[in-house]
Amino acid sequence: MNNLLSNERKRYLKKVKLDKILVNVTRILILLVFLGLWEVLARLNVIDSFLMSMPSKIVATIIELSKSGELGMHLTTTLYETVLGFLIATSLGTIIALLLWWSEFLRKVLEPYIVVLNSLPKIALGPIIIVWFGAGTKSIIFMAVLITIIVTVITMLNGFLATEQTKILLMRSLGASKLQMLYKLVLPSSIPTFISCLKINVGMAWIGSIMGEYLVSKQGIGYLIVYGGQVFRLDLVMASTIILCALAGLMYALVALLEKILIKKK
């Protein structure tokens, strides 16, 4: 097969490959230089390792946490809250968006409420949530749902409403019922919107669960960060933040995988 390719083609393919390698190498290099500088400067006492911590200490903290089993406990707590909040908000939000798409009357009536709820900083509801749901996991999940659901409703509704008018006309000319309109046209054409909504929601659910943990928790990654800050253990704060980065990245990667599966057919 290879000898069928022209020289120009070979050169082009080589260049594409080279570009890709270059981007990846640079990415890793930036991280390594950053970590290396951090470590060296901290060791030379140019920066205060008590305030800034240092990579080796962070790694040691993570190892220590995982050995004592604490890490697993905090990790599963936060993961549980985030994933549950994400799933509840996404499904419930999509269902609400569907109802609003279905009934123009409902949409018109509820519009100002949605606008207000969207602009409201949800953290302001923290005290109310704690009073209602207690200082525990329930409150945190509720916070994650609250932050995520409004965005879901708005994004999905806009997606549903953006269905091409001419395609709707085609369906009407065939005599399609509203239900047929929904599952033959509106839902399939909204899949790209749904995917981008999922991507936004991953971030939103994390904000919700960590914010919730800041407010009430006794365990979880958010709790570790707050606790570490209070007792001035910056190693712990940094270690938790890095774990958080890894988790959020992982969840995003899962959504990206789902996207590949759903869009593959195109």
Partner: peptide, 15 residues
């Protein structure tokens, strides 16, 4: 049922 309507653009569903 016995009337078919053809629009300006093809309006084929991409999926």
């Amino acid at each position: 049922e016995n009337i078919g309507y053809m629009l300006q653009r093809d309006e084929l569903f991409s999926w």
